[in-house]
Amino acid sequence: MKFHYGMPIFAGLIIFLGLVTFPLWFNAPSEAYKDPEPKLPTEAEVKAAGFDTFACVESTQFMREKHMQLLDEWRDWALRDGKRSYTNAQGQTFEISLQKTCMKCHTSKKEFCDKCHEATAVTPYCWDCHIEPEGYNETH
């Protein structure tokens, strides 16, 4: 088989294949991928925080997909419209507040928020304005 300028072309081809197969060889030596495990509150902790029900504001799958949208809407309602109460699909009403509602149960940014955000390389800008809750500095 006759090749013309085979050496430089194959060198380039090998570099290209190395680059596009990056995820394969990058992950090969590390351990098997594990889902991030955000620390979820226990029922006792939720009761102690002063909530009647153990469930979150919305369903788990809703929160997994759309929590950022909910928080964004909450910010607009609370700070721009002055609306401070949120009623979910089950008819339960919550106070619209990151610190007084969400973080009552999800007390630690490091143990809860950061787990998934680090796994997916996301840097939300919540904390540009909000003060990171207590417990963050101790564990960080």
Partner: peptide
């Protein structure tokens, strides 16, 4: 998109 294909993310 490589953030979804690497762990830890460089």
């Amino acid at each position: 998109h490589m953030r979804l294909f690497t762990e830890p993310v460089p």
